[in-house]
Simulated assay, not measured.
Amino acid sequence: MKALVHEGKAGLEGLSYRDMPAAEPGTGEVRVKLKTAGLNHRDLFVVHRHKPEDPQLIIGSDGAGIIDAIGEGVVGIEVGDEVILNPGLGWKENSDAPPAGFEIIGLPGHGTFAGQINVPIDNVELKPGHLSWEEAGVLSLAALTAYRALFTKGKVKEGMHVLIPGIGGGVATFLLQFAKAAGAKVYVTSRSAEKCESALQLGADQALDSNEDWEQALGGQKVDLVIESVGAATFNKSLKQLRPGGTLVTFGSSTGDSVDFNLREFFYGQFTMHGSTMGSKEEYREMLQFIDKHRIKPIVDTMYTLEQFEEAFKRLEEAKQLGKIGFYIPE
């Protein structure tokens, strides 16, 4: 089978589109013939974390396709079923944090940028019927991350005011769609006027320039919940917009991991802060039920072939996308 493989060199220079051997599914596994796959920022991190001396690795965490082989002991699914992959391995029940041994498809094991993949039966669900293959292939990692951050950690409710800095990426666009479906009032920020306009078309109640004074732009309106992933560039501005007793959930730090903030203002403000990453199988199923109920679809920015991986990664690195970037998998 053809696959996008990392080996031999650090970073993107170690990627090549090449032939790789296929394998039969093991006990408790199914083999999925992939039709589409989604590109995530995690894939950028993986190619930098995967060392040149490590064994060759097929990257990719998101995907959707058709069951074409079933391993011993698998019940409840059949060859020919259309499925979507849950990229989280070994996290079944909702819990405060992932259990020991939790991993994600695409590192350390092979991932989804290939003609097929073997995964545990626990990691496949039937593809939601209202989603196209393009939409299903890019859904899982970003949508699950958004769902846990917003509902499990942020406890969003109807009527709440929610701020989402850095609209544009896959998780942020899911956060906007999910929060609006839950009945919240949603504010977003971006440096891009085009992304702000697109966010308004997706239902945002107000879109702010990331560089302007948010408090002034919002007319002094404070928010109940901030879902923060930008990091150092926006963290303190986000805190400033929280109402007393409000909650901030953080799941990313694209502009830097280190932040200085005023502890006295934090505890006098009675703020709550949660860290969040990915989610459990239980939350994944809840997320699929939620998108099915509200007929939510991923915002698909651009689809590429796997041979066009350099263009896809460049678009992601330059943050030009609105929503998700995906790949078509060759027959």
Score class of each variant (00 low, 15 high):
residue 91 W to P: 05
residue 137 G to S: 06
residue 212 E to G: 13
residue 69 A to Q: 05
residue 256 G to M: 11
residue 2 K to V: 03
residue 106 G to E: 05
residue 286 E to I: 03
residue 301 D to G: 02
residue 309 F to A: 09
residue 210 S to G: 11
residue 97 A to G: 03
residue 252 G to A: 14
residue 182 A to T: 09
residue 255 T to R: 10
residue 195 K to D: 05
residue 236 N to R: 12
residue 173 T to I: 14
residue 111 G to W: 04
residue 75 V to A: 11
residue 176 L to K: 07
residue 174 F to M: 07
residue 321 Q to D: 01
residue 58 I to L: 05
residue 150 L to E: 09
residue 82 E to D: 15
residue 25 P to T: 05
residue 97 A to Y: 06
residue 287 M to Q: 12
residue 70 I to N: 00
residue 139 L to D: 00
residue 262 N to V: 01
residue 322 L to Q: 03
residue 89 L to N: 13
residue 83 V to D: 02
residue 151 F to N: 06
residue 148 R to G: 00
residue 23 A to L: 07
residue 38 G to M: 06
residue 221 Q to H: 08
residue 186 V to W: 02
residue 55 P to K: 15
residue 274 H to P: 04
residue 39 L to I: 07
residue 152 T to S: 14
residue 57 L to Q: 01
residue 101 G to F: 13
residue 63 G to R: 15
residue 32 V to L: 15
residue 21 P to W: 13
residue 325 I to C: 10
residue 109 G to P: 01
residue 327 F to K: 12
residue 201 Q to G: 03
residue 270 Q to K: 15
residue 308 Q to D: 13
residue 178 F to S: 06
residue 325 I to N: 00
residue 193 A to D: 11
residue 244 P to Q: 12
residue 60 G to H: 11
residue 139 L to A: 15
residue 313 F to D: 10
residue 216 Q to R: 13
residue 319 A to V: 07
residue 331 E to R: 15
residue 40 N to G: 11
residue 154 G to R: 04
residue 231 G to V: 14
residue 213 D to N: 11
residue 72 E to K: 15
residue 135 E to L: 08
residue 314 K to M: 07
residue 320 K to V: 01
residue 221 Q to I: 11
residue 187 Y to F: 15
residue 277 T to S: 13
residue 218 L to D: 01
residue 220 G to A: 10
residue 4 L to M: 11
residue 286 E to K: 15
residue 75 V to F: 10
residue 165 P to I: 08
residue 279 G to L: 13
residue 90 G to I: 03
residue 155 K to H: 09
residue 197 E to L: 15
